[in-house]
Amino acid sequence: MKANNLSSCVVTDKVDESREFYMKNFNAKITFDCGWYINMEIGKNTSTLQFMAPQQPGQPTCDGIGLMYNFEVDDVDLEYERLTQLGNEPVMPLEDHPWGDRGFAILDPNGIMLYIYSNTEPSEDFKQYFK
């Protein structure tokens, strides 16, 4: 299979909170919004996220546990400053990692971890793993 696009849709009772969070913190552009389902574009490569309210009684919703989105940015230090000034509390500190990035993480309203990072030179121990 050759996919033309890949995006994720989070089933949540927090569609409104998600819309506001991503618009405020990531300059998300809403491209579809019928109230219970939203589609938004984030970044220059038009990465997309969708959030949808449950449509069936008892439909499971996302609890965020174990789910992480990675956001590659040009200047992670600048994004750390900006996002913490907006009131986001890091759940992972801003630090350098030997596998070749500098990053930190915050949580969205659904408990999804958002890892924001910039690429750096990997240590010699990790260079062997890159293909």
Results as ranks from 00 to 15, higher is better:
K14W: 04
L78P: 03
G58S: 12
A105K: 05
S47Q: 07
N119E: 04
N5W: 08
D13M: 12
H97S: 08
N27I: 03
E72M: 13
F71E: 00
F71V: 01
T12R: 13
E121F: 07
L86D: 01
S123C: 09
N39S: 13
N25A: 12
M40R: 09
T31M: 11
N119A: 10
T46R: 15
K131C: 08
D13C: 12
I116V: 15
T31G: 06
P109E: 05
M23I: 14
C62I: 01
T48A: 11
I38G: 11
K131Y: 09
S8F: 15
G100H: 08
E41L: 15
Q128M: 10
P57W: 05
L67V: 14
V91R: 01
G43T: 07
F51E: 06
N5Y: 13
I65E: 12
P109C: 07
L67I: 05
H97I: 07
I42L: 12
V11H: 06
Q55E: 14
D75P: 06
T48F: 05
Q56D: 11
G43E: 05
N27Q: 15
C9Q: 09
P60T: 06
P98W: 10
I38H: 06
K29A: 11
G111K: 02
E89I: 15
N119Y: 07
S7G: 05
P90A: 03
D74N: 13
S47E: 03
S8W: 10
H97M: 14
S7C: 11
E41M: 06
W36K: 14
T46G: 05
G87R: 06
A3M: 14
N5H: 14
L78E: 14
C34W: 04
A28L: 02
N4T: 10
N5K: 15
Q55D: 11
G103A: 05
P54G: 08
R19Y: 03
L107S: 03
G111V: 00
P122C: 08
R19K: 15
V91Y: 02
